[in-house]
Write a protein that binds this DNA or RNA. Structure first.
Lengths: 274, 274
DNA sequence: TTGACAGTTGACCGATTAGTCATTATTATA
DNA sequence: TATAATAATGACTAATCGGTCAACTGTCAA
């Protein structure tokens, strides 16, 4: 386990227990038995740590849920899997989930807000696709409202789940949410949202290839595998080229996606080029 | 306007803009043109200010919505009025609403968490009553799930409303929410929650008459009206008596409820004795 | 054994925090 | 007008914050 990971784990525990603002770097370092100086060897600032945590979890959650849904062949089961997986991950990462629930971009930097908005839009996009898969084009007009309502239900039950620490039956919860979603998708006719909710600054932070390249470069420094290093280098060159060839990108991606460090960027590239 | 009120107004603005933790007492006092010392003449601590703000708003919101719903004669209109009023107040008090949305009891004291839970349970109780009024006993089994889902939808749309600062058509939003709620109330059959969600510590903080008495006493110091002072004194005595007579309580309440300072306690007493 | 070096440390810095209190300004009373 | 009472001030304290950096430690090759 890298030092970064040790710090992240300690920070999540403390952030969840006391809030982000109220947790000091000092407390984090004490909690994982390193010195203050050592912290700043791994992270340039406290903000950078926070961003790293958000990125780490949001990307994992989005990928896990999406993979689970994609692997489900039966259309009608997809929605059920979506809810089960979502709540499973949320209860697995209780600490971080609590942070997410209550600290949706309080004080922290502008950069973080953009990051969160990007992930939220990505998650909403996946949910929209899922709803179309399950219910077909009949939900065309109500798609934006449906997304908001589904998010609302998930949020509401999740918050309940965390505030009263009781153990819950995720399968059963998922069943009832599938029923509610289906009822709404089939029967509701009034439309409030006629277009997607435009979050401020979100459009500018759409996955600029630049960011993916930077991410790949950084991930490269962690890898010792020669094939991976070469693939990553070629991938970066291909992306920078004016005539990026999808086949080559996807081929190189399949060389890299087994490594955790590259996983998120591979996921983004597959979304874009497949 | 009392000095307390001036401070509260300034604090709300700053809390909403920068978050509670990140707003200093200094900034609050500068924002309303008083000295730091003067602040501590009105509030014993920053925590006390925060609690006062929460109490001020939560009680106002609960009372406003409840009154509006009660005044609506037609049953089928009640739900519509509930949503319209809720979003109207939330957009009216945007600042505080934003605080509520994102800072559900982060760092702040244990006492505050209990306070919030009490208000949440009160609001949930009112919503439950409303749903029974509108849909009758057919929702008996699904009442707890319905409350959670309705709260989720409100939360979700409200957050959207605040993050993208666009102006919204509250009437139309209310209509679609009425439709969705009705569809769910009529058609859903699966039940997840078989009993109310028990929030930790919430049961102990049920409106102990003691707290009402304390509140009345404090409110008394602000009133100069003689009838009010006498009524309040008699009310306190009646509440402390072993054989509290409902008729007397309600009579005295009607002497007091026009005064803002007493309003909330009168509301609580009416709920209890009517 | 020496010396170069990466990794680690914790005392320290300037800024900021919540909260205090001797002092001053204002008002009411006589 | 003089005196008492109350309200308001802002310099001050002790603590804590994020962040820095000269000094220290342990590990190797020579």
């Amino acid at each position: 386990m890298t030092k970064k990971q040790i710090i992240i784990d300690a920070a999540i525990e403390l952030f969840a227990a006391k809030g982000i603002e109220a947790t000091s770097v000092q407390q984090i370092t004490e909690h994982c038995g390193i010195s203050k100086g050592a912290f700043y060897l791994s992270f340039k600032s406290k903000d950078e740590l926070i961003i790293a945590i958000i990125e780490y979890f949001m990307s994992n959650i989005i990928m896990d849920v999406d993979h689970a849904v994609s692997e489900t062949a039966n259309r009608t089961d997809k929605l059920y899997v979506y809810f089960v997986k979502t709540f499973t991950i949320l209860s697995q990462y209780t600490g971080f989930a609590e942070i997410l629930m209550r600290e949706r971009s309080t004080t922290i930097s502008e950069k973080l807000i953009e990051k969160v908005h990007f992930f939220v839009e990505m998650a909403n996009g996946n949910l929209t696709k899922l709803l179309f898969d399950v219910f077909g084009n009949q939900i065309e007009e109500k798609q934006y409202d449906l997304v908001v309502v589904v998010n609302g239900m998930v949020h509401s039950y999740a918050q309940m789940l965390f505030e009263s620490k009781q153990h819950i039956d995720i399968q059963k919860l998922a069943e009832t949410l599938v029923e509610k979603t289906t009822i709404l998708a089939m029967n509701s006719e009034l439309v409030f949202l006629k277009k997607p909710i435009s979050l401020p600054h979100a459009s500018e932070s759409i996955p600029p290839v630049v960011e993916i390249i930077q991410g790949l470069q950084q991930a490269c420094t962690y890898s010792s595998n020669k094939l991976e290093k070469e693939s990553a280098q070629l991938l970066i060159e291909e992306l920078q080229s004016d005539t990026t060839r999808a086949a080559i990108v996807l081929g190189l991606v399949s060389n890299l996606e087994k490594n955790d460090k590259f996983e998120w960027y591979c996921y983004l590239l597959r979304k874009q080029f497949q």
